[in-house]
Design a protein around this nucleic acid. Structure first.
Lengths: 195, 195
DNA sequence: AAATCTACCTAACGTTTGTTAGAATTTTAC
DNA sequence: GTAAAATTCTAACAAACGTTAGGTAGATTT
């Protein structure tokens, strides 16, 4: 009995994994259930034994990622370090998330629009929450004199946004590891590019 | 006769403008031709007097934006200024593009995946070309001693990526103008956030 | 050995999709 | 005011879509 449930979960994970890859490649709207099934070597109808709907797949991917980010932000908030180190840790986490869960992060960033009405609203709330908390962290860093006196919201979005390209650019073949990439980006964002 | 052609072009522009808004809101796959027609106060079939296909709409939007960026990069390259000023001018242009043509830029950034096979290939080439040229500019700036010795590719994508949020964030109601926004971002990217 | 359960299949359903054909209507030209 | 041209309409198409129903083969349990 235990193995059966396990197998079922495994297949579900497999579907989600493959869906994330396809959605990233061709978009949620550009990927049909038949496409996805073909990738998994089964018929489209067969997937409905494991999932409820196409929307549910997207939903699972997006909320898994969103919750991951939020949980990690909470961990950072709880750490007893100076603000600048919290920011560094946050940047490192973003880079790692994109390297480890590239497809899922990509789908979450690009295809959340296709979430159904209520889920879309919840998702937006989660995102807003994340942004608000991070902005608070930045503001605190400025007040503490650790950060330059920039517009906190501009800093917030510039940082968040500047990390996104990693998901689209990073491949093992590039020969640059997570650590090195993190360090490069941290230097760039914290110290700027001007000599 | 002149007015007729003009009217036809005007309607086409209207369709493209409204399509860009809808695509941004709901995605290319999430927007039907009937949705778009409703927004324009006409029937879906009527649009085909002005356009060839749904794909063509996306194509027109994406290539218009891509060419705009490329042309401007060429202008910058031709300017007789130091590299750091070229970079500043580039950042300013990106911000302005997103403020002036928000929906179109957004669609180009997010929905280019839905371009048809050949157009997709061409689009990717254009993007690659833009990236390569900009990387060259950054490398030149480093060699000239104007920029810190960062990884040029990391700098390239961090800069490009960090500008993208403007399109999603900026509204007239925020009370921050293009100029102020540009200056803030330039400071952040060039001098960093660390005090 | 029979019964049950798991995981897939085939077939088909109702919708929605982008799009076309051809008629109707509005606008422009003379 | 009439003819021509430009623009939009209605109606319908075939294709693709997500999804459901019902069946089947194999494994597991009793």
């Amino acid at each position: 009995m235990a193995t059966l449930t396990k197998n079922k979960t495994e297949k579900l994970d497999q579907i989600l994994k493959e869906a994330a890859k396809l959605f990233r490649q061709k978009g949620f709207g550009g990927t049909s259930m038949r496409d996805l099934a073909a990738q998994l070597g089964m018929e489209a109808a067969s997937m409905y034994y494991h999932i409820g709907s196409k929307d549910e797949i997207l939903e699972k991917i997006c909320f898994e990622v969103a919750n991951n980010y939020l949980e990690h932000l909470e961990e950072i908030e709880a750490q007893k370090t100076i603000h600048i180190d919290k920011l560094k840790e946050l940047i490192r986490f973003h880079v790692r998330m994109m390297i480890v869960n590239g497809p899922e992060v990509s789908v979450t960033n690009h295809d959340w629009k296709y979430l159904t009405k209520e889920k879309l609203a919840t998702f937006k709330e989660l995102r807003k929450l994340y942004e608000t908390r991070l902005e608070t962290l930045i503001s605190a860093g400025i007040e503490a004199g650790e950060l330059a006196e920039v517009n906190p919201q501009v800093a917030l979005f510039t940082i968040l946004s500047s990390l996104r390209w990693v998901e689209y650019w990073w491949k093992p073949q590039r020969g640059i590891g997570a650590k090195e990439l993190e360090n490069n980006i941290i230097t760039l964002l914290l110290k700027g590019i001007e000599k």
